[in-house]
Computed example of a mutant assay.
Amino acid sequence: MILLKDALAQTRRERGLTQEELAARLFITRQAVSRWETGATEPGIDMIKLIARELDVPVTRLLDMPEHYCQSCGMMFTEPDQRGHEADGTETDEFCRWCYDKGTYTYETTMEEMIEDCAPRMAQNMDWSVDECASLLGAILPTLRRWRKSARPNE
C-alpha cells in the first residue's frame, strides 16, 4: 500500500511538475503541497479528486488503498470469509460475499444506489462524514470492475 504523501510526490514528479506548478493548478499555496508530500497534513477527498484530475491519474492511485477490495462496492477485505464465490463454489478474490455469490451479483443496483447504501456504513467506520464517504465512493466505484462498461461479472 502506497501512502498518499509518497504517491502524490511520485506522480507529480512523473508529470514533470514542481510543487509550485501543481499548487498554481489547484489554486493553493506551494506550502500546502509540501505539507501533503511530507505527511504533515492530508488533503480532503474533494481536493484529492482535484489533484487526481490535474495529474491525470485515477483517484485510487493517490489513496491509501489496500491491495484487495471488492470490485463492486469497494469494501476492503479484512477477513477471509468476506469473499464471494463463483458458481463452482471456489472463492473469488474480486468480490465480497454481500455483492457476489454463486457466480453472479447478489442484487441488482445502480452505482448511485450503491453509494447511497454504502456511504453511511463507511462513515461509521471512518472519521469522515457521510458526504465525504459518498464523494470518495463516487470517485472509486467507476474504476471498479462491476461499474466499468458492463455490469456482467464475467466480461
Rank of each mutant, 00 (worst) to 15 (best):
residue 91 E to K: 05
residue 63 L to D: 12
residue 80 P to T: 02
residue 130 V to N: 06
residue 90 T to G: 01
residue 103 G to D: 09
residue 49 K to V: 11
residue 145 R to W: 06
residue 25 R to T: 07
residue 39 G to L: 15
residue 135 S to C: 06
residue 71 Q to D: 04
residue 37 E to L: 08
residue 121 R to L: 12
residue 12 R to P: 00
residue 122 M to N: 07
residue 88 D to I: 01
residue 36 W to T: 10
residue 70 C to S: 06
residue 73 C to F: 01
residue 7 A to P: 04
residue 43 P to R: 11
residue 111 M to S: 11
residue 124 Q to M: 14
residue 33 V to F: 09
residue 59 V to E: 06
residue 103 G to S: 09
residue 109 T to V: 12
residue 150 S to C: 15
residue 63 L to S: 11
residue 23 A to G: 07
residue 112 E to N: 12
residue 63 L to A: 12
residue 56 D to L: 07
residue 95 F to L: 10
residue 37 E to M: 07
residue 65 M to D: 09
residue 32 A to K: 14
residue 66 P to A: 15
residue 135 S to Q: 05
residue 79 E to W: 03
residue 108 E to M: 06
residue 148 R to F: 01
residue 110 T to M: 13
residue 140 I to W: 00
residue 90 T to N: 04
residue 74 G to H: 02
residue 100 Y to A: 07
residue 79 E to D: 14
residue 74 G to E: 03
residue 69 Y to G: 09
residue 130 V to S: 04
residue 134 A to W: 00
residue 6 D to I: 13
residue 114 M to F: 03
residue 137 L to D: 05
residue 78 T to K: 14
residue 55 L to H: 05
residue 93 D to E: 14
residue 120 P to M: 08
residue 72 S to F: 09
residue 14 E to Y: 02
residue 70 C to K: 07
residue 52 A to H: 03
residue 134 A to C: 03
residue 122 M to I: 06
residue 27 F to S: 13
residue 16 G to W: 08
residue 43 P to D: 12
residue 76 M to W: 02
residue 57 V to C: 02
residue 142 P to W: 05
residue 139 A to F: 00
residue 102 K to N: 10
residue 142 P to R: 10
residue 134 A to S: 10
residue 8 L to I: 08
residue 60 T to A: 11
residue 40 A to G: 07
residue 66 P to F: 12
residue 42 E to W: 05
residue 61 R to E: 14
residue 70 C to Q: 07
residue 78 T to S: 15
residue 14 E to H: 07
residue 49 K to F: 00
residue 92 T to G: 00
residue 36 W to C: 10
residue 110 T to R: 13
residue 26 L to T: 12
residue 47 M to F: 02
residue 105 Y to D: 11
residue 13 R to Y: 03
residue 150 S to P: 08
residue 125 N to C: 03
residue 127 D to W: 01
residue 125 N to G: 11
residue 5 K to Q: 15
residue 72 S to L: 03
residue 77 F to H: 10
residue 26 L to D: 13
